[in-house]
Amino acid sequence: MSLFVTAPFIGSASLHVSDILHFDTLSSRIFFELRVPRVMFAFFAGVILSLSGLLFQSLFRNALMTPYTLGISSGAVLGAGLAIKLGMASLAFGIAAISMFGFFGAMLTIFLLITLAGFIRGEQSISLLLLGIALSLFYTSCLMIIFYLGDSMQNDMLLRFTMGSLSVVSWESPAFVGVASLVLFAVMYAYRFELQLISISDESARLKGVDTKHLTLILLVVSSVAIAILVSISGPIGFIGLIVPHIVAKLYPSSINRRILKTAFFGGFFLVFCDMLVRMMLTQSELPIGIVTSIIGGPFFIYLIIRGRI
């Protein structure tokens, strides 16, 4: 809680409690229109990323499964890249075109993954992971073409987006992402025992009357929409979905149904904390959060592979 209270005070402009209590002052506006929405956004983003990680890992029984490793975030980046390249950075239907294209990019990736997964014979989860990696590489190449063809202003915008950022300028984005994270949490909690069964094995879930194909589809769609909403606003923030469920499992070694709430809170606070560090490190400008999480996440990814937790 103390993290929540102190987090909005930290940043390039230092704020004091007495300042923000006077409305219409600059400090007050920075606090309520920038800092507080940002902390809320970071929290909900952390919830979505870590819950999706936990969900994907349980559904596919593989510790490396996250929306990030499956290429869903890359899909969003490519979508946003297209919007920028096509000069559609302005608003369309009240929502930024970048966000809309990002959303469709992420959803298209999910659709591709689900369709292609239908053709997979044999070990589903490993093949799906490889599919995700293949898609990511393909997207990256497409993005390179966009970079190559883009002018420097477009490229700068795109580069900013690919780095992932939590800066928001209004209450709209935290509200969107907040609703998405609540829905994701509610659905996962409602199906907590089904998830527990699926995370043992597909067969054991079906022997208890769970329609695993149908349920997997529902859960994937819900989490993908949440992820798509988030990534279309923030850009890719990698490895949270990989790290947080693992740390929570180490801290509270219990079955998945009892880790959903803990993972959500820990994920939220973890990203608020990372974001606070980012704002403390540099005072002139700020390091994009996606870079920070990737720098922590990369070595962690290697650690998971070496420890054989895949």
Binding site: S58, R61, N62, Q196, S199, I200, S201, A249, P253, S254, S255, I256
Partner: peptide
């Protein structure tokens, strides 16, 4: 045989 992914289920 039982293959369990969830390592913490009691």
């Amino acid at each position: 045989k039982l293959q369990v992914y969830d390592p913490y289920i009691t």
